[in-house]
């Protein structure tokens, strides 16, 4: 084994090799987060159920009872829970990932390991919540599911795309927040904005009707917009507009790749910035 240490330069191949050899650490970190999460709480893993259920109840009150929002002919509970399942996965990846470096500050100054595993491991933790939420969804919405092969395809796509988008954004935010601590304030705010801008408990038609086609196209900047459309076309058999799939794939891959590259290029300066 021969390790070369040179004045800082981005080496994509080396970064990927390192990631591969740190796959064990990825798992261990996820396990740690998972175990620690509900440590010393009385209800333990039941919290993973309580959280989506309460969110669902609030959405029901606001969007169904108060606003009577349109849900494309699907019952409100199934519709919004289908949205929450993917949204929670996305937002956990994003908010936890963006915070991961600052959280592990002490480690960053003392030990070397590929920093990207700190963020990527959050994806595994989010998966465990996803499984629980998905079971809940299957129980509540089983009558309305439109099961085909595309259901599984769209589910996998929604997971992969929201992972890529959230992690890509998190890579940018985590790396930049070392230099600009202000971003720490921005992240929770941004997640909250995205929540309201994503068609989770209302139909995307709502925007088209109120803003018109041209303006509502701007909402596609939010990657969750198309991801939810893809996912719902699979579970409820709703329509999918032309090109959504291709654009979402390109866009999410772009977010991930650009974020990852930026993160890798500043990785070796991180300890100096803390």
């Amino acid at each position: 084994m021969h390790i070369k240490i040179r004045a800082g330069q981005l080496n994509i191949r080396a970064s990927l090799q390192e990631l591969w050899s740190a796959r064990g650490l990825l798992l261990t970190l996820a396990k740690r987060d998972f175990k620690v999460r509900y440590a010393q709480t009385k209800l333990g893993y039941i919290w993973a159920l309580i959280q989506p259920l309460t969110a669902l109840a609030v959405l029901y009150l606001v969007f169904q009872k108060a606003l009577n929002s349109d849900t494309q002919g699907v019952s409100f509970l199934s519709y919004s829970l289908s949205g929450l399942v993917i949204w929670n996965f996305f937002s956990y990846n994003l908010s936890q990932g963006a915070n991961a470096l600052i959280q592990a500050r002490a480690m960053l100054q003392k030990i070397y390991f590929p920093r990207q595993v700190l963020l990527l491991s959050k994806g595994l933790v989010a998966l465990s919540d996803l499984v629980i939420a998905l079971i809940l969804f299957a129980l509540i919405g089983y009558e309305e599911l439109y099961l085909t092969l595309w259901t599984f395809g769209s589910f996998l796509l929604a997971i992969v795309l929201s992972f890529l988008a959230a992690q890509g954004l998190a890579f940018w935010l985590a790396a930049l927040s070392l230099r600009f601590r202000d971003l720490q304030q921005v992240v929770p705010f941004m997640v909250q904005m995205l929540f309201f801008l994503s068609p989770i408990a209302y139909s995307p038609d709502l925007w088209q009707n109120s803003l018109g086609n041209e303006l509502s196209n701007w909402l596609l900047i939010n990657p969750m917009y198309s991801i939810l459309e893809i996912w719902r076309s699979g579970v409820f058999g709703l329509g999918l507009s032309n090109g959504t799939l291709g654009i979402a794939l390109l866009y999410c891959s772009f977010l991930f790749t650009s974020g990852w590259l930026y993160f890798q290029s500043v990785e070796r300066k991180m300890a100096d910035l803390l």
Binding site: H2, K4, I5, A7, G8, K110, Y112, K269, A271
Partner: peptide
């Protein structure tokens, strides 16, 4: 810190066997 790769050098070379 440089040897353990926590931070990068500004110049120079290190080979670790």
């Amino acid at each position: 810190k440089i040897l353990s790769r926590i931070t990068a050098p500004s110049a120079g070379e290190i080979d670790v066997y």
